[in-house]
């Protein structure tokens, strides 16, 4: 098992104070600290674009683990990267339902176009490419995701065009959701912290497409404060064709006289305090139950 701390090619990262504060907040969400490890690693990738040595140290400190234990977890999951990702992560599904509709051909074409292989990052730092296992969007095969936002029904040509447009600073809309805002901003969301504040976790370099896009497009909201449940103001964008097909395919259940289009929509809820700890919960005593025993064994196994 190699330690991810030895893999980074980036500069020696540090943990900014605001990232540490968010990390502590994530730990407070769970009855047992270690449960916060997966979201914490997403937060580390938000800060540094990969599982950095400084990030591993932070996780170890906050979860009372050794660096080796954190490294063992980080290397198990495919979403944690051991080298800095580019600004956008492009994933192409090559599992069989996508494959028969051309998923692998799309992947090969993008790989040739970008000049990188699986988990490779382009020299200009704009894209990391990966081929992914079933992305759970087989009805839209073949599917490509950019920063985990899905573009359905791709061909080699359309996927190349998609990448070109993003490289040119455009923000093409995915089949559902909002235009990609950069993988680091998305990592903030995957830590269940909501949209990333502007500029946070972005390396201070000129020419980041997402920075330019943000400057001209106020659609990406900035959370007021606190843990993440900031309103999502971006409206859904299920494709028209998809909606129309569904409408034809199914009997609508709308009640008479209530046109959903007239219903006020949009106004999201106010940011609220997320329930952090379970007040009645007490840590299990070692050996108090069969599960406690199993837990002990685990600790020994991973130490």
């Amino acid at each position: 098992m190699s330690d991810p701390s030895t893999n980074g090619s980036g500069p020696a990262e540090t943990i900014p104070a605001e990232i540490r504060a968010k990390a502590e907040e994530i730990v407070g969400r769970y009855p047992v600290k270690r449960s916060a490890l997966l979201p914490l690693l997403h937060l580390v990738q938000h800060a540094h674009g990969y599982v950095s040595d400084a990030g591993v140290r932070l996780c170890a400190e906050l979860c009372d683990l050794t660096k080796a234990e954190v490294g063992a977890v980080a290397t198990f999951y495919s979403m944690y990267k051991r080298a800095p990702m580019g600004e956008h992560l492009v994933s192409v599904c090559t599992n069989f339902a996508c494959h028969v509709r051309g998923g692998t051909a799309v992947y090969r074409h993008l790989s040739d176009k970008l000049g990188v292989g699986h988990n490779g990052t382009t020299e200009d730092g704009q894209f990391t490419l990966e081929h992914a296992e079933c992305l759970g969007n087989c009805e839209g095969a073949p599917v490509v995701t950019v920063d985990y936002l899905n573009y359905e029904g791709q061909t080699p040509a359309s996927a190349a065009d998609l990448v070109d447009r993003i490289a040119a600073g455009e923000r093409p809309a995915p089949t559902r959701g909002f235009p990609p805002e950069g993988i680091r901003a998305v990592q903030h969301r995957l830590a269940a912290l909501g949209p990333a504040p502007e500029g946070e976790g972005v390396v201070a370099e000129a020419g980041h497409a997402s920075d330019q896009a943000r400057a001209t497009d106020g659609a990406v909201p900035v959370p007021e404060s606190g843990p993440g449940l900031a309103p999502v103001t971006v409206e859904p964008t299920f494709s028209e064709g998809q909606e129309a097909e569904r409408a034809r395919a199914r009997e609508a259940v709308r009640e008479a006289g209530q046109d959903p289009h007239e219903v006020e929509s949009g106004a999201g809820p106010q940011a609220r305090e997320f329930p952090t700890t379970d007040p009645d919960w007490e840590p299990p005593e070692p050996g108090a139950s069969a599960g406690g025993d199993a837990d002990q064994e685990h600790e020994e196994g991973t130490s």
Binding site: G136, Y148, N150, G177, L190
Partner: peptide
């Protein structure tokens, strides 16, 4: 699932 960003939002 981590890749399920939009369902998560």
């Amino acid at each position: 699932r981590g890749e399920y960003l939009w369902p998560g939002i």
